[in-house]
Amino acid sequence: MIDVSNNYISGYIPAEIGQLQLLQKLDLHSNNFSGVIPYQISNLKHLEVLNLFMNHLFGIIPSSLANLNFLKEFNVSYNNLEGPIPTGTQLHSFDASAFEGNLKLCGGPLPNECIPNKDMDADNKNNKDEGNGHHQLPWFYIFAVLGFIVGFWVVCGSLVISNTWRYAYFRFIDNLQDRLYVMITISASTR
């Protein structure tokens, strides 16, 4: 069971949540999650409760949720979901209150019917491709690599360009090496 409701957690629901194969209850309601519902949730074959009520989720409800055979409670109310509720799934067995507040959702059990939309079909395909909202770049690694590149060229580039800095740097390294040698020799001789 994972219950982190009412915690004001923001960000995307990680796609890795689908690796928790034995998870039975996932309660993320009343947070600030954004992005789409990751289709990897359908990997949770033992999931009985999925509560995503009152977040900032958008996009469609993944049709892959049809694979959740044990689902007894489901709530995606008050998000920004759109499109048809996947047909042929047990999602249709839930009360309309499980979907309320999503003004662009349509299809049973909701009273508003869906109008075929080519853009929505493209969104359905993109929803699966994107995983959880946007193509998430590993920003930490990008900044680490950029920091290394900039730092490397600031130090090494200045040594390549300026003779004065190069001589000063190597003089500093030689002096440091001499000091370390003296410290180690003195330390070894006093033992």
Results as ranks from 00 to 15, higher is better:
residue 53 F to W: 11
residue 93 S to W: 03
residue 129 D to P: 00
residue 122 A to P: 01
residue 178 D to R: 10
residue 50 L to Q: 11
residue 167 Y to T: 01
residue 134 H to M: 05
residue 150 V to C: 08
residue 20 L to F: 08
residue 23 L to C: 10
residue 24 Q to C: 04
residue 25 K to S: 15
residue 110 L to D: 09
residue 166 R to C: 01
residue 110 L to K: 06
residue 90 Q to T: 08
residue 120 M to G: 05
residue 176 L to I: 07
residue 97 S to A: 12
residue 44 L to R: 02
residue 73 E to P: 01
residue 121 D to M: 05
residue 37 I to L: 09
residue 8 Y to C: 06
residue 100 E to P: 03
residue 158 S to Y: 03
residue 104 K to I: 11
residue 173 I to L: 14
residue 14 P to C: 07
residue 21 Q to A: 13
residue 142 I to D: 03
residue 44 L to K: 02
residue 106 C to D: 01
residue 99 F to D: 07
residue 65 L to F: 06
residue 20 L to S: 05
residue 119 D to S: 06
residue 41 I to H: 03
residue 168 A to H: 11
residue 43 N to Q: 13
residue 62 P to L: 00
residue 21 Q to C: 04
residue 66 A to G: 12
residue 55 N to T: 01
residue 128 K to I: 13
residue 183 M to L: 14
residue 60 I to G: 00
residue 19 Q to L: 15
residue 152 F to I: 05
residue 107 G to W: 05
residue 30 S to T: 08
residue 89 T to A: 08
residue 90 Q to C: 03
residue 96 A to R: 12
residue 170 F to K: 01
residue 106 C to F: 03
residue 90 Q to Y: 05
residue 63 S to R: 09
residue 123 D to N: 04
residue 149 I to Y: 11
residue 61 I to E: 02
residue 117 N to C: 06
residue 65 L to C: 00
residue 78 Y to M: 03
residue 37 I to H: 08
residue 190 T to Y: 15
residue 190 T to P: 07
residue 183 M to C: 09
residue 71 L to C: 11
residue 3 D to T: 07
residue 5 S to E: 05
residue 122 A to C: 10
residue 2 I to S: 09
residue 170 F to C: 04
residue 170 F to T: 03
residue 49 V to E: 14
residue 145 V to C: 11
residue 89 T to D: 11
residue 104 K to Y: 15
residue 177 Q to Y: 10
residue 60 I to F: 03
residue 174 D to K: 12
residue 178 D to C: 05
residue 88 G to F: 03
residue 89 T to K: 10
residue 96 A to G: 04
residue 179 R to C: 00
residue 162 S to C: 09
